[in-house]
Design a protein around this nucleic acid. Structure first.
Length: 370
DNA sequence: CAATCTCGACACCAACACTT
DNA sequence: AAGTGTTGGTGTCGAGATTG
């Protein structure tokens, strides 16, 4: 009894749970514009309102490649605003987004709010945002207040590894980006099959959830006139503290559908690097996701086809040798951090090779069902 | 704040070696 | 001859820093 209590305490200090259902869908929900399963963003009006959405189609070859739609509800739009948005949408050059970068694809859109709206959808759940989400799950475990998490913006920016300015704060550009990330995680809804947890296609009840909802925010000292939405849409502001609720939330004492991550998780962003190129975070999340999907018997060896590894790491460039190089470099990074004990390529039929990972259960493990 | 600068990482391409 | 993997050069992108 005493020992069990101690063990639980230790477990909470050295690791934290992340909702299993969220992990199962996270790599798909984060698909980039180059992802082969993604559909182009569309504007849609139905009886519930207006939406900007992007769908990731299921890949029938593998059950883990589920369908998910991410969408931004566009509330309180007047008919004129809807028309204006449709006009601007026509200026969105999706081919250029895919071929020459998102900023090139957006350059014909001059309205800042609309530009940020498209940007938020196209870059949704990039590794930086995923890192923020992991940070919040870690805090949730520490604060032990259910899905509610309170944090100070500067602490988060600090954990993300950004350097402070002379006066001890952070550059307005970084602060602005954080508010936009938080609002994107709040606004963007994921539409997925409720049956995901069981991994079958029966009873296709639909679930609609944001990853988090912002419940409250605080401004230090001088009471400024801060508007969350306006800050995300137009300005360069960030509140000094937030309280959010994690909408996908499971952990000890609930149904037990979660994956434990080591608490020493490093979410610092590489200096000068494009956020979408953080392969280490992508691989870690994908391995956690596959751990949920495959539930390997020994809990340690995981075999994943190379094709799906490259796809889920967004290594979709035409230079296959280079993709390969980046992949193995990334495996080595996770090995050095202790997540992976070993990885080796298993030759398969024809060109279909797989990689067998030996994972370190001290750093990453599925919770055994009660 | 916004404009400008810096720099690492990338895509793309061409050239090349090696295999089948 | 066609396919596969490797290498290095070039231009571009985007993140973060700097500056006014």
């Amino acid at each position: 009894m005493q020992r069990a209590v101690q063990a639980k305490g230790l477990e909470q200090r050295t690791s934290f749970p992340v909702d299993g259902q969220l992990l199962m869908v996270l790599p798909r929900a984060a698909a980039s514009i180059k992802h082969p399963d993604i559909r182009l963003p569309i504007l849609r009006a139905d009886e519930d309102g207006y939406y900007l959405e992007m769908r990731v189609e299921a890949d029938p070859q593998d059950s883990s490649e589920v369908a998910v739609t991410r969408r931004v509800p566009l509330d309180h739009l007047s008919a004129e605003e809807w028309q204006e948005l449709k006009t601007q949408y026509a200026n969105l050059d999706l081919q250029a987004c895919a071929d020459r970068g998102i900023s090139r694809g957006l350059e014909k859109i001059h309205d800042r709010k609309i530009q940020r709206l498209f940007m938020a959808l196209l870059t949704f759940l990039n590794p930086r945002q995923v890192s923020i989400v992991l940070y919040l799950y870690k805090l949730a475990a520490q604060q032990d207040n259910g899905p509610l998490v309170s944090f100070r913006s500067n602490d988060l920016l600090s954990s993300l590894g950004y350097t402070r300015t002379k006066d001890g704060g952070f550059a307005s550009k970084l602060r602005s980006q954080l508010n936009r990330d938080l609002v994107a995680l709040h606004r963007t809804e994921l539409v997925l099959a409720q049956s995901l947890r069981k991994g079958n296609a029966m009873g296709a009840k639909v679930m609609i959830k944001s990853i988090l909802r912002i419940r409250d925010y605080e401004i230090d000292n001088v009471p400024r006139d801060f508007d969350l939405a306006k800050a995300a849409d137009y300005t360069y502001e960030l509140a000094d503290a937030y309280t959010v609720s994690l909408e996908f939330f499971d952990g000890p004492g609930r149904s037990g559908d979660y994956v434990l991550f080591a608490s020493d998780l490093d979410i610092s962003q590489k200096l000068g690097s494009n956020a979408r190129c953080d392969y280490k975070t992508k691989l870690l999340i994908y391995l956690a996701s596959r751990l949920k999907w495959d539930a390997p018997q020994d809990g340690q060896y995981l075999i994943v086809s190379k094709q799906y590894l490259l796809k889920n790491l967004d290594l979709l460039g035409s230079n296959s040798s280079r993709n390969n190089q980046i992949f193995w470099r990334t495996v080595e990074e996770l090995r050095q951090e202790g997540y992976i004990l070993g990885a080796q390529e298993l030759p398969g039929k024809k060109k279909i090779t797989s990689v067998q990972f030996q994972l370190n259960s001290d750093k990453l493990r599925c919770h055994d069902k009660p």
